[in-house]
């Protein structure tokens, strides 16, 4: 029997839950089966979703269908405390450690310097990390960065939500606005439970932009849309070359309009800024018995 769940030891309850989830998938293929493992990873079932938008920014066009295999995505952005463990373990190789040390933000006391801030703000998302740092951390955890498509599906689900929580402007994200309780700085991850996405993923709008695995191209959606292919593109991974990596979700320095589920932005992968962090993803294993 094929399942989309990681191979692990199962007791009777877990078999029961597995059968229930499998039935859910059979009966409601478009509906998510919510699952969460010890690593705070949320399961996103395989299926087709709508990506992009026809009535927002030019690079979000065209709205098109994308098929993604099942995957897990971090419920939260990677925190200072989590990244600290990785950073500490690199200590043996001094050069490596230097490479993956987050940038200091002396001028922003709410963020501060590394590694002090890992102790002072352990639950804040790690910032000041380049795309390469994020990738190295993900590899160290045996995972990877989400693709742009995986990120968008986890944020908007099967609906066309402008923000992860819905279509109304609400103070459910840490943005540049003053009404969200966090002025001029980061919020601990998971501070906005009402802002969670359809799948229950937190902070997909605001707090920090999140590195994705893909190179940025303003016309990539045309390339993967049904203008060129009759069937929805399967598991797109972005262009093969580029200068910028895609970042998603907006941050504490942005207006809410830039924190939408479809808004695309880009940054040089070497840059380490106070407004970009990341979350993890991994492909759900297909095992056969």
């Amino acid at each position: 029997m094929n399942t989309f769940y990681p191979n692990r030891k199962r007791n009777r309850n877990s078999y029961f839950s597995l059968i229930a989830k499998y039935l859910m998938l059979l009966l409601f293929p478009g509906i998510a089966v919510f699952a969460q493992d010890a690593e705070n990873m949320i399961f996103v079932s395989a299926g087709t979703f709508t990506m992009g938008s026809d009535n927002r920014a030019a690079d979000e066009r065209p709205m098109h269908k994308v098929y993604l295999g099942a995957y897990y995505i971090g419920k939260y952005e990677v925190t200072n405390a989590e990244y600290y463990e990785f950073w500490k373990q690199q200590a043996a190789a001094a050069a490596e450690m230097q490479q993956h040390t987050p940038e200091n933000f002396t001028h922003i006391p709410q963020i501060g310097n590394w590694p002090e801030r890992a102790k002072q703000f352990p639950d804040h998302p790690v910032v000041g990390v380049s795309w390469h740092d994020a990738n190295a951390y993900a590899a160290w955890k045996g995972m990877r960065l989400p693709t742009e498509a995986e990120w968008e599906k986890a944020a908007r689900g099967y609906t066309d939500r402008i923000w992860p929580w819905g279509n109304a402007i609400e103070p459910y994200a840490n943005t540049a606005a003053d009404n969200d309780g966090y002025k001029n700085g980061l919020a601990p991850v998971g501070s906005f439970p009402k802002g969670k996405s359809y799948y229950g993923v937190m902070d997909m709008a605001g707090n920090v932009w999140e590195w994705t695995a893909d190179w940025y191209s303003d016309v990539y959606y045309w390339h993967t849309s049904q203008v060129f292919t009759k069937r929805p593109k399967r598991n797109p991974t972005g262009p093969v070359v580029g200068s910028w990596r895609v970042i998603r979700g907006g941050s504490w320095v942005d207006k809410i309009s830039r924190c939408s589920t479809t808004f695309r932005f880009y940054l040089y992968p070497n840059l380490k800024t106070s407004f970009v962090g990341f979350r993890l993803a991994k492909t759900a294993e297909k095992t056969s018995k």
């Binding site: 940038e103 200091n104 933000f105 002396t106 001028h107 922003i108 320095v253 800024t273 106070s274 407004f275």
Partner: peptide
């Protein structure tokens, strides 16, 4: 370097 970082961040802002 701290000054450099501050000016870059303010530039992005």
């Amino acid at each position: 370097h701290s000054k450099y970082v501050r000016h870059v961040e303010q530039g992005f802002s």
